[in-house]
């Protein structure tokens, strides 16, 4: 047991309003502020982006309808290619009643080494009754020295449908670089009618005992959370849970899946691994398996993932 260390203080407000700038290297001291707000609505049989605002280097690269007009696939792009110290990214996505959207990113989110100020990303997702949001960003990679804060709120209406994931890799494993210094802060919150029903709060330092602890990461550099909810999933949760667990058993990745009853009515998947690829493959398989319940349709893999 670690002795009484310095108390972990509440998350500081790491907001900043830095200027915009040109292309960057992987070490940068000044921060950029970028935001993107999207609102999707159902118009007849189609889902349309009725609001699309961006500020700074964060935008939607394109909207595609590979599954027909009912479901919009949007690709979120952060042109600088990485998040540096002092950066602040705000992403807000709202789905109105009956809208369906799938959002992903063209590549991993790279959190660069931060000289002093940390970087922060805020994601706010809200899903109305009868709407379906699939939130499938590629993994976040923390470079050595990264000081990252991720805040995410997922506000679900009682009859909302959603599937999403969050994958974090500590260190540039492909380059043989471990994550030796820095911190990773997270505040992840799922709410139902404004009431929190699932919270994860983390303040992980690079030398944190949780990285080695058998209750923490047990030495794994990659960890992921996925969540699923929908009225169909709630009605058929035993079958959905059994199907998801059968998929997890077939993968050689430590994974646990649980169903949280009302007021949460939420399926939660946790996994850890030695590399992001294997964890991603597991979550993709689970997304495929659960999609008939969460999105009432067979999965269609975003083509950008093949590039």
């Amino acid at each position: 047991m670690p002795s009484a260390a310095a108390p972990r203080l509440p998350l500081p407000d790491e907001s900043a309003s830095p200027p915009e700038a040109g292309p960057r290297s992987d070490v940068q001291t000044s921060g950029w502020k970028a935001s993107l707000a999207l609102r999707f609505a159902r118009q007849g049989t189609a889902t349309r982006a009725v609001e699309r605002r961006h500020h700074g280097p964060l935008r939607v690269q394109r909207m595609l309808y590979p599954e027909g007009p009912a479901c919009c696939h949007a690709l979120l792009l952060h042109p600088p290619g990485g998040i540096a110290g002092g950066d602040r990214l705000d992403i807000a996505v709202a789905l109105e009643e009956g809208a369906r959207a799938l959002l992903t990113t063209p590549g991993a989110a790279k959190w660069y080494r931060a000289a002093a100020a940390g970087a922060r990303q805020d994601v706010h997702l809200s899903v109305a009754d009868g709407a379906c949001l699939e939130w499938l960003p590629q993994e976040a990679i923390l470079f050595d020295g990264a000081r990252a804060a991720q805040h995410a709120t997922i506000a679900l209406a009682p009859r909302a449908a959603t599937f999403g994931w969050d994958i974090v890799q500590l260190g540039r494993l492909a380059a043989g670089e471990a994550w030796r210094t820095g911190h990773w802060h997270q505040h992840f919150r799922v709410t139902r009618a404004g009431r929190p029903v699932w919270i994860e709060r983390a303040r992980l330092a690079a030398d944190d005992p949780l990285r080695a602890s058998p209750l923490g990461l047990a030495g794994h550099p990659v960890f992921a959370t996925a969540w699923a909810a929908s009225p169909a999933l709630d009605a058929d949760r035993e079958a959905a849970l059994a199907a998801a667990r059968a998929v997890a058993e077939a993968h050689d990745v430590p994974c646990g899946i649980t169903w949280l009853a009302a007021p949460a009515e939420l399926l939660v998947i946790r996994a850890v691994g030695e590399g992001a690829h294997a964890v991603r493959a597991l979550l993709e398989a689970l997304w495929h398996t659960l999609r008939p319940w969460t999105a009432s349709r067979a999965p269609q893999r975003p083509r950008i993932w093949n590039t």
């Binding site: 108390p7 509440p10 709060r201 209750l215 646990g256 649980t258």
Partner: peptide
């Protein structure tokens, strides 16, 4: 430690996996 919700961290992925 400040006695506020923002202090309360529950990051324990293997505990969650094993419990599930």
């Amino acid at each position: 430690t400040p006695a506020v919700p923002a202090s309360a961290c529950n990051f324990a992925p293997m505990l969650g996996i094993l419990s599930a």
